[in-house]
Design a binder for these strands. Sequence first.
DNA 1: CGAAAGTTTGAGTTGCTTCAACCGCGGTGG
DNA 2: CCACCGCGGTTGAAGCAACTCAAACTTTCG
Lengths: 225, 225
Amino acid sequence: MAIKLDIEALLAHLPLFRSLDKTQLVLMAQASQEVRVAKHGFVFHRGDAASGLYVVAVGGIKLAIPSANGQEKVIEFFSPGQAFGEAVMFLDKPYMVQAQALEDTLLLWIDKQDIYAAIDRDPSFARRMLAGLSLRLHALVQDIETVNLQNASQRVISYLLKQPREGEHVQFPFNKNVIASKLGLTPETLSRLLHQLNSKGYIAVDGRDVHILDVPGMEAQLYGR
Amino acid sequence: MAIKLDIEALLAHLPLFRSLDKTQLVLMAQASQEVRVAKHGFVFHRGDAASGLYVVAVGGIKLAIPSANGQEKVIEFFSPGQAFGEAVMFLDKPYMVQAQALEDTLLLWIDKQDIYAAIDRDPSFARRMLAGLSLRLHALVQDIETVNLQNASQRVISYLLKQPREGEHVQFPFNKNVIASKLGLTPETLSRLLHQLNSKGYIAVDGRDVHILDVPGMEAQLYGR
DNA sequence: CGAAAGTTTGAGTTGCTTCAACCGCGGTGG
DNA sequence: CCACCGCGGTTGAAGCAACTCAAACTTTCG
């Protein structure tokens, strides 16, 4: 974990900061702090006070809602270049989710005040921020849609089809039990459904590797039956 | 539906516009247009292009995701003073939800460009906008929590406890039908659960009127068992 | 190489839905 | 004025999709 990084360069190609000019970028870079979190380590817990936002530089983060009985519901994943924790920052509420590292992760942390300053200096930064939040909102609404309007099999199918794929090849980025939670399923159910889609000839499963064989057939499942 | 309204005064006490000074308020009022929608009428459908935001002046609106088989999943309700449609405005995507009037409703519509202009003129307006979106996001995450982590009975209980109540009295603002959809239940299940909570002595149901009798007992249901 | 974590498979259970019938009430037209 | 319709709501019975529990198998990693 001894990575030396050029914060300014890193920030420069984040969507969020792309509109900033050189001067502001330098200010932002100065304002940000490195945070290192080991795999399975927590960035924050539910109930913690929010005083800034995080940007993933290296690694991966999952946001989840913890439940009483040790369960958790995964809300979203964040990979390098993505920001999280911005939403709560603008409210004066504590986090209602927890953030946990899926692998050894390097984050940048930027204080609320510095973000506010950037908003005041540059309206187009405010717009980017607004667009970012809107995107997040959009994704959540989609999640609500899948959980409420689609059955287990359809959820798996739409997840697979939504994954970025090279050719017909897709790979699960994390443990299946984390994916299952994101989809609102138990790991057992996910396993069974993958097996089922496999034997129906829609996909070919091999561990975390999946080959999508019949896109039209799968899409048909999302509407018919 | 022949209400004459003072747009400026109306806007003035919306949280969103509260920070605007007199000059800007006038600009905003000039930019906004009245839109009238009869009960059950649609403000927009899924797939429509979004080019501005709406503020409820009189009446009530529900946002919902339509599904193939004529079902729909209710996402949120909006009452006078609340704004909706802002999120999609910042993205260049069509609406993924539909907005329908729950009663005869009067809306104000403000064009995207005018909102952008206000953001550019006044950073504190941008902040309010950000806070508004964050709040929306927060609510959605809570919904995801209830749907995924609580059973049907707990969902009804938390809904009842969340409703604004005068003394111990609560009233369903709409058809139980619509409430059920918001909670991710069928109307039948909602009816049965209300009956059940009634006979257990937690509440007293009379049509749309509910008396909350045993708050501690209900809260206990959210954790235990 | 061994322990721990992740995954699959099987069997049994259940919470909620579905389907269907029925009730009560408000509106409407004959 | 009353019969009728239609809609929102309730109640009952039956079904099923997904979960729970449990055990075996596989991969990961110290």
